[in-house]
Amino acid sequence: MTDIAYLRVPSAEEDVAPQLATIGQQMKRTFIDKCRSGRSERPALRKLRSYIRKGDVVHVSAIDRLARNLFDLRDLVREFNSKGVSVHFHQEQLTFKANDSEGTTGSMLRMVEALSGFERALVKEKQSEGIEKAKQRKAYKGRKPTHSVAQIKAALQRHDGNKTAAARDLGVSYRTVLRTCQKEGIE
């Protein structure tokens, strides 16, 4: 069994010492990312994922140091557990064990999944409310078109009106071309 630490700080200037103090024990190996949590590219996490072996324990000072959101937490814990690796979050005093004979890790993961679904629903609801308010203020324009009507007409002419070929030519979906044709009355 190898004790491994994963630490993440938002910038190069910040110190990892408080996270090490939270973990509070000597680690065999430490992986440190110096980037914001929203970044999907975290080199030390990528190295950790390839380094871990069955029986290892990954120590993290807090959940927000490892995961960007609940979906990310669920996926990372599942990945680590499937490799026989346990994950221990010190601040929350949570351990997701790889070889859990009592079934508590599975229960905790189901709870995380339920919470992640709840989180996603809240985000979608807030997004919809924001779009509705923007529409009422006439501030919502939707996504800007990637191609002009003239560009779509030209692509249709080049392909003798074949919408599929025109879409492929422009690098857009068939539905985009179809929607523009319906909106502009193009046959």
Score class of each variant (00 low, 15 high):
residue 82 S to F: 13
residue 125 E to H: 08
residue 11 S to M: 10
residue 137 R to D: 02
residue 67 A to Y: 00
residue 57 V to L: 08
residue 186 I to F: 07
residue 53 R to L: 13
residue 69 N to M: 10
residue 121 A to S: 04
residue 50 S to R: 14
residue 42 R to H: 05
residue 72 D to F: 03
residue 4 I to Y: 02
residue 96 F to D: 02
residue 120 R to C: 05
residue 57 V to F: 07
residue 177 V to C: 03
residue 124 K to N: 13
residue 64 D to T: 01
residue 55 G to F: 15
residue 94 L to V: 11
residue 165 A to V: 02
residue 142 G to Y: 03
residue 136 Q to L: 11
residue 42 R to V: 07
residue 134 A to Y: 01
residue 84 G to S: 04
residue 38 G to M: 12
residue 10 P to N: 14
residue 42 R to C: 06
residue 16 V to A: 13
residue 132 E to D: 12
residue 14 E to T: 02
residue 6 Y to L: 01
residue 119 E to H: 05
residue 151 Q to L: 08
residue 80 F to D: 06
residue 89 F to Y: 11
residue 100 D to K: 11
residue 77 V to P: 00
residue 184 E to N: 05
residue 114 A to C: 12
residue 56 D to A: 12
residue 101 S to L: 14
residue 35 C to N: 07
residue 130 G to Y: 14
residue 166 A to I: 02
residue 70 L to Q: 06
residue 110 R to K: 14
residue 21 A to C: 03
residue 90 H to I: 01
residue 114 A to G: 08
residue 92 E to N: 00
residue 59 H to D: 06
residue 60 V to D: 01
residue 72 D to E: 04
residue 154 A to Q: 04
residue 34 K to L: 03
residue 7 L to K: 07
residue 182 Q to V: 00
residue 173 S to Q: 01
residue 146 T to N: 08
residue 65 R to F: 07
residue 49 R to V: 08
residue 45 L to E: 10
residue 81 N to C: 15
residue 69 N to K: 12
residue 125 E to Y: 09
residue 64 D to S: 11
residue 2 T to A: 14
residue 32 I to M: 11
residue 79 E to D: 09
residue 75 D to G: 08
residue 42 R to K: 10
residue 169 D to Y: 03
residue 40 S to Y: 11
residue 39 R to H: 13
residue 163 K to A: 14
residue 182 Q to R: 10
residue 41 E to L: 15
residue 70 L to E: 12
residue 102 E to I: 10
residue 177 V to W: 08
residue 92 E to P: 04
residue 152 I to H: 13
residue 43 P to C: 04
residue 48 L to W: 09
residue 162 N to H: 06
residue 34 K to S: 04
residue 37 S to A: 14
residue 65 R to A: 04
residue 50 S to Q: 15
residue 7 L to A: 07
residue 51 Y to L: 07
residue 10 P to I: 08
residue 90 H to Y: 12
residue 170 L to G: 06
residue 8 R to N: 11
residue 144 K to G: 12
residue 88 H to G: 11
residue 105 T to K: 02
